[in-house]
């Protein structure tokens, strides 16, 4: 058995497979994230607290496959955020464990930002509610909580939030940074919170799906139509004639992606029509690029940003999700139209 199998075309980076024996010794590894040959001791378990704690449990568990999401380790060779899966496998009548590591650092860094905002909004609301019915006269409640955080100053928390969000926390586009963010203050915190909580679920679902390899023929046209319909989104979808009727690709990933793109809905859905164009072109990497281009009329960019902080965050999360698949997202602001382009390489069979 060899683990150095070619990695799936979708995942060009950030995926390592390691075969461990019963004692936790590395038998094979494709060393894409860290070099197992540099490990100092025999068993990997003595070098990662998580494995020291859990390896026995994994070996003795009745489940064949166990997943641990959003893992951080204390080791400098695994410094980011990862999903781990452990799959028990018998080889020549001996038990082995296949450990797969998915590097989701970029996505999880944004996930943390989103969770940070929703948690702080929740706690802020908790304190607001308490003020009308204080348990104690003293205001000790808020004294320490919000130091150095988004909501640090009770009254101006919205500007803190937006400022951080647009300037640094999220990888947002040039056009948005140009705007005077200090003027963008009237955001509805509870709307934002709700839509960010939905986003957190969407990220998790997406990451779950990219771990399953389910290649299939996909009819892109009817899939896009179906998602637009279910999102109740007014959208004019145009396919270039050279996009084949069906493409053979990872069905799970493409479904998740189209759902994210088409299902995306800002809370002040503008009445004007959004256009989506799908085209197909050669990729420098040898496959084919499927390119989605969105064109959305915007009367007033400030008003748009003001009411669509959730949308801005979502696009920036989408950008990092796409980067897991070596896709890209770019944007420009052209004569009152906001244009988003998503490009993704689809391996052709």
């Amino acid at each position: 058995m060899t683990i150095n199998r070619p990695k799936r075309d979708w995942k060009l980076c950030g995926h390592q497979v390691i075969l461990l024996d019963e004692q936790g010794r590395v038998c094979e590894s494709c060393d894409t994230i860290f070099d197992t040959k540099k490990l100092i001791s025999d068993s990997i378990c003595s070098q990662i607290c998580f494995l020291e704690s859990e390896f026995e449990v994994i070996l003795n568990s009745s489940a064949r496959k166990i997943t641990f999401e959003k893992m951080q380790t204390e080791c400098n060779f695994l410094p980011g955020y990862y999903d781990f899966t452990f799959c028990k496998q018998e080889i020549n009548k001996k038990p082995y464990v296949i450990w797969e590591i998915y590097d989701h650092t970029k996505v999880y860094e944004q996930y943390i930002n989103v969770q940070q905002i929703t948690n702080e909004l929740d706690i802020h609301q908790e304190f607001q509610n308490r003020k009308s019915k204080p348990l104690f006269p003293d205001s000790f409640l808020t004294k320490n909580f919000f130091q150095s955080s988004y909501l640090s100053k009770d009254k101006t928390y919205q500007s803190y939030l937006i400022d951080d969000l647009i300037r640094s926390k999220f990888d947002v586009f040039d056009l948005m940074v140009e705007q005077d963010v200090n003027q963008i203050l009237q955001l509805n915190p509870s709307d934002l919170k709700e839509s960010l909580k939905i986003l957190i679920n969407e990220i998790s679902t997406f990451l779950k799906h990219i771990k399953q390899n389910q290649e299939d023929w996909i009819d892109m046209r009817s899939m896009c139509q179906a998602y637009c319909l279910s999102a109740k989104r007014k959208m004019d979808v145009v396919f270039d004639p050279d996009v084949p009727q069906k493409v053979f690709t990872d069905a799970n990933i493409i479904r998740q992606l189209v759902a994210l793109l088409c299902g995306e809905k800002s809370n002040n859905l503008n009445s004007k029509l959004t256009k989506m164009n799908v085209s197909y072109c050669e990729s420098i990497l040898g496959g084919r690029n499927l390119v989605f281009c969105f064109q959305e009329p915007v009367d007033d960019i400030k008003a748009f940003l003001n009411s669509s902080a959730d949308r801005v965050i979502k696009l920036s999360v989408l950008k990092s999700l796409l980067s897991l698949l070596s896709g890209t997202l770019s944007s420009e602001y052209l004569e009152d139209d906001l244009i988003f382009s998503v490009s993704l390489t689809i391996p052709v069979k």
Binding site: T73, Q115, Q116, F146
Partner: peptide, 28 residues
């Protein structure tokens, strides 16, 4: 004092001497 929310899990350990016995606590 700064609040930085955690996602998922972080594991670390500390050895303690409890009732004359060495014990390694793996804290999640």
């Amino acid at each position: 004092d700064k609040y930085l929310t955690t996602i998922g899990v972080k594991v670390n350990k500390k050895t303690m001497n409890v009732k004359g016995q060495e014990l390694s606590l793996l804290v999640w």
